[in-house]
């Protein structure tokens, strides 16, 4: 996956709550068997509305998405993360995330940042007032910074380390292949197999 250390870029305010993954990438886009090309499906239905914020030229090239609460709820589709990354987003800031989406993001190197609701709204208002405003998402310091604001955010040490190093989970787990063997040898014999 992509490593994430610190990122500075412009932000897009998405003033919606419960942005489910069906909105982030509608089901018809999930039929691809490759991992690329999903940026075209990002918010596909909403982007048909010329007034939708991603269609506003002043936010073109922005790389931080600032959303209302409960971003990425619903379906487990990792395609939602791929679509956001391929469109150019490096981080998403919201007050709450769907659990599976948050997990998927950290596997891929898209940083989900939880900030309190009022701070998310303050940031949204700030980028609405000045779309050129630069926002820094700093995983090393666990901070989000813009203007004179400096806000800390929480992320567990392990996930942070994996993101900073860009480490592949499977590789890490396979270091413990012996533990897996031992566990497997102790499993109850009546547990089902599919054969």
């Amino acid at each position: 996956m992509d490593a994430f250390t610190t990122h500075t870029g412009r932000a897009v305010p998405l003033r919606r709550s419960n942005v489910d993954t069906d909105q982030i990438i509608p089901a018809v886009w999930l039929k691809q068997v490759s991992r690329t090309g999903f940026e075209r499906g990002l918010f596909a239905a909403w982007r048909e509305d010329p007034g939708f914020v991603l269609n506003n030229p002043s936010y073109e090239g922005a790389s931080v998405l600032v959303s209302g609460p409960d971003f990425g709820t619903g379906s487990s589709r990792e395609h939602a993360v791929w679509a956001l990354q391929q469109y150019g987003f490096r981080a998403v800031i919201a007050a709450r995330f769907g659990d599976i989406f948050r997990n998927n993001s950290t596997k891929m190197g898209l940083l989900p940042v939880v900030l309190p609701s009022d701070e998310v709204e303050a940031l949204q208002a700030a980028v609405e007032a000045d779309p050129a405003l630069e926002v820094t998402v700093d995983l090393v310091e666990r901070q989000v910074r813009w203007g004179s604001k400096v806000l800390g955010f929480e992320i567990d040490d392990y996930t942070r380390w994996r993101l900073l190093e860009g480490l592949d989970d499977i590789g890490l787990t396979l270091r413990h292949a012996d533990d897996i063997d031992t566990y497997e040898n102790g499993r109850q014999t009546w547990l089902p197999t599919t054969v």
Binding site: S76, E78, I100, N103, N104, K107, M108, D169, I170
Partner: peptide, 10 residues
């Protein structure tokens, strides 16, 4: 529980 594609691979 549900998982994403990276976890499916895992």
């Amino acid at each position: 529980f549900g998982i994403g594609t990276s976890e499916v691979e895992h």
